[in-house]
Design a protein around this nucleic acid. Structure first.
Lengths: 236, 236
DNA sequence: TCGTAATCTTACTCACCAGTAAATTTACTT
DNA sequence: AAGTAAATTTACTGGTGAGTAAGATTACGA
């Protein structure tokens, strides 16, 4: 069995085990056994437990960012890019829950080097989102000096909300990533007060990106075509 | 040294250590030493490492909920209650960072019983927030059948956003909890589109609760009086 | 067929840490 | 002062798990 393939097999298993048990309770012995291989192989290929975890981290982070970027790419307006990106995020998390757990829910209790890496992965995602938000602000207001800090703030809030809604989705299996995204857009983009007043946001039909499917695995459907709508509509 | 006091001392130290190291890497030996006592004392009073962690969890959760409830109590409109609650949350997290880390950032990799407890604590917070949101929706729309699920959704998004903004605050030491809250309210309650259009939300002067300070420790100032404003204002 | 480089295993070592047994000291009551 | 209950310690055990040494097996080109 050639090295490249073995490595991926090991990482596949490791992501599952790290997600289920957490970093410290996960044992390299168990990972090796589930991968159908003996422990020294893991050390030969991935150096250490930490190295193994970092490999998991990097691969999954890459996949998530790719899914996010791929979905938002080629979408015209900032508003719809944000929608496409969030949609891809929810789809990714729904399909690869283990990836997300490893990626985000392991941050605090790990070693210096790992936290640094997690923080960097998180920053990468944050930067993507902040970019989309900044575009939106920029388009509406033109170049404004405080926009960077403001966009960063909004990005943090959005990513945090999306993360938490991951739990909500788990308890509402009927909900599709698209519906969740639409609700979030309503809440953030239109605002609760206006939603309560009857205003809603609906993605226009056929607004998905036209580019080819990007790197991210099977999942992460690019911005799916929601039900018909005018992009911005007001009810009542 | 009487038992009650020792227990609190131990828990004080344990919260710090658990927050810094995470559950598994934290050793009872270290906690005992930092608390200035020997290990068997910890086991005598708190039963086990898990018991110790649960004690930390319960105490900090109680404090946070108390701060939240205390701030929102006696505030008249749902809108301002939400503001007061969020404000108290940010103030609490800013002042007791360790509590928040133990409370929330340790969820996935722990034992069955602990995850259950964490989930319950989280649900308690979520229920508080959902209550405020439901009030808001109820006030605007009257009794609506779907309101419960909708409120739960919004609560998840809000709590997640608030959690993530915790990190943002850490990198922006100049920002006060009140300013962060105001920004979040703008984003969620008014909506980005309307914010971009020039609309902003400002809490009216002197709108804090009049009741006595509740259980929560020193921190968690009740809804602070923001700068003057009309509660809902439009710029430009 | 020989050699060599990769793949892979068995069988350890060593450190750390949760939990405990068995006292010992302190403080308070009668 | 005697007695007893609480507070507190020293000194262990047992298990687990990261990491490794040393060698076995396969693949394959010269």
């Amino acid at each position: 069995m050639p090295r490249r393939i073995r490595e991926q097999q090991i990482i596949d298993v490791a992501v599952q085990v790290f997600a289920r048990r957490g970093y410290h309770p996960a044992s390299v012995d168990e990972i090796a056994e589930l991968a159908g291989i003996s422990k020294p192989m893991v050390y030969l290929y991935l150096d250490s437990k930490e190295g193994l975890f970092l490999a998991c981290l990097r691969r999954e982070a890459e996949r998530l960012v790719a899914a996010f970027q791929g979905a938002a790419r080629d979408v015209r307006t900032p508003e719809l890019r944000l929608w496409a990106g969030l949609s891809a995020f929810f789809a990714f998390v729904a399909e690869h829950r283990d990836s997300w757990v490893v990626l985000h829910r392991q941050a605090s209790q790990l070693s210096e080097t790992i936290t640094a890496e997690v923080a960097q992965a998180r920053r990468a995602v944050m930067a993507e989102v902040a970019g989309l938000v900044r575009d939106g602000i920029g388009e509406a207001l033109g170049p404004v000096p405080v926009a960077d800090e403001e966009a960063d703030f909004v990005a943090h809030a959005l990513v945090g909300a999306a993360d938490s809604l991951t739990d909500w989705m788990e308890r509402h299996p009927g909900e599709s990533p698209e519906r969740v995204t639409r609700r979030l857009m309503n809440m953030v983009w239109v605002g609760m007060r206006n939603v309560l007043a009857g205003e809603i946001w609906t993605p226009p039909a056929g607004s998905g990106p036209q580019g080819p499917e990007p790197a991210g695995r099977s999942g992460a459907p690019a911005a799916p075509a929601g039900p018909a709508g005018e992009g911005r509509s007001v009810r009542e």
